[in-house]
Nucleic acid binder design. Sequence first.
RNA 1: GGGGGCGUAGCUCAGUCGGUAGAGCAGCGGCCUUUUAAGCCGUAGGUCGAAGGUUCGAGCCCUUCCGCCCCUACCA
Length: 506
Amino acid sequence: MTDGIHKDRLDKLEALRADGQDPFPPRVPRGTPVAELLDGFDDRHGEVATVAGRLGVVRDFGKLRFAHLTDRSGSLQIGFQRDRLPDFWPTRKRIESNDLVSIKGELGVTKKGEPTLWASEVTLAGKALRPAPEKWHGLVDTEQRYRMRYVDLFANPEVRRDFMTRSRIVREVRAYFDSLDYLEVETPMLQPLFGGAAARPFTTHHNALDMPLFLRIAPELYLKRLIVGGMERVYEIGRVFRNEGISTRHNPEFTMLESYEAWADYRDIMARVEGLFAHLCKTVLDGRTKVTFRDQEYDLAPPFQKQAYLDLFAEHNPGVDWFDVDSVTRRAKELNLPIDGIEAGKLANDVFEATVEDQLTGPVFVYDYPVAISPLAKRKPEDPRVTERFELFLAGMELGNAFSELNDPIDQEQRFLAQVDDKDDETPGEVDIDYVTALEYGMPPAGGLGIGIDRLCMLFSGSASIRDVVLFPLLRRIDPAAASADPDAAADATNDNGGAANESSQ
RNA sequence: GGGGGCGUAGCUCAGUCGGUAGAGCAGCGGCCUUUUAAGCCGUAGGUCGAAGGUUCGAGCCCUUCCGCCCCUACCA
């Protein structure tokens, strides 16, 4: 890891220390955010100001130097003149690009009219022992961007901007539900049983209790216990964990919004979702309703299109009966879908996903999902084969899922039992009896909603990959030993004489 | 899990048919008081992801492995 530049900077650090200068002082003058100084700059000429931030590339003219300083709010040109900086000038080469500095000076402009802080005092705030990536292209290598997000963030301003957008979205989602008198709550991430969604969980273990635990795949069942408890309107924004594949749309841990509202049904929740998008457009997009995602433009202005699940199914699978196993199986074979050991309803839904989902440009609400694939949703009185449930799709991507919550404990227990019978590794091996008991105490009719916050952020920031809206996406660990040694070759070498193995284990 | 692509200096990238490892930026030594990817002169910097193999000779061809990206599958 020690290259020439690193060593050179270490030498500069030692030289500064030898001069009695602390390269990592506990505090320096903090200064004013750059954006504040640039605001109304024309009236600020001659004003003395202090700024603090990271120094960009230094353009050196011998007795005059320019560099931009960047802080969280923006960047401002700094002008260094030898005549003004008698104390700093002899050591100017030890304070260099990428160092963190605090600079006091006089606001002015250059001949070309660029706002500039003409430095009168330069204080090193933190020596950088490594250089910034290339000034023009920034850090491009995706692997390095994810592994060293700290570099990505200061080297690529648009990355910083996207994560500011994410922060803004989360804040405005809270503001929206808060304004509707919802209560923000926190429920267990460590759960003795997992449920509330269909996904493989991560497992862990509590030592003192000597108890196996699951990392939650959804907060759903706990939030509905709160509805039983009379909290009536609750939401949670929090991490959930699913032990599934990784893709541009899937990270093993992601952030989910779930909300539950007593005395509401799925129609009310549909209106809530539209209200949420309207609010986000107003606040996050400054009133715009159009976003560009994966080279396509989408209009997020409500109302959204609405289409019945079974209608869409029939449209894309003519002659196939969703509820008839044989007909669905034939269609699944036609589509080359795996069919062995897959429960009938799930198979039918697989056909739906294969034929319909990626066609859904949206935004569109797909509503009235069959009971078999909706174990927690209330049946529709007019047609007990389906439930009062909808999902929101955009760009072929599921953004949200909502339903009138099943509050019949007997029906709920039966559906849980059916799940246990069809046991696969995405459903728990036992019924969550306590949840059924909670329902037995009485839960008011309620509408619930789940929205993937990360995908929402992808949409609003125009990010094609979920990794661009997750600060530290999960990557395989780089094993220093494995990186330099082929196990087979090392084993062979050990068998022979061990020479190569010794070398490769360094 | 399946398919495709990529990995060369700190960073961004060239590298032809298999024949001495290259450029720009950053760095270092200089010149320059109004630059904006500053410019000019000079200079240093390499485990070509790793290990094997083929060959007189491998960054390039073959095998295996490691990592990342994209598509696909599972999911949200």
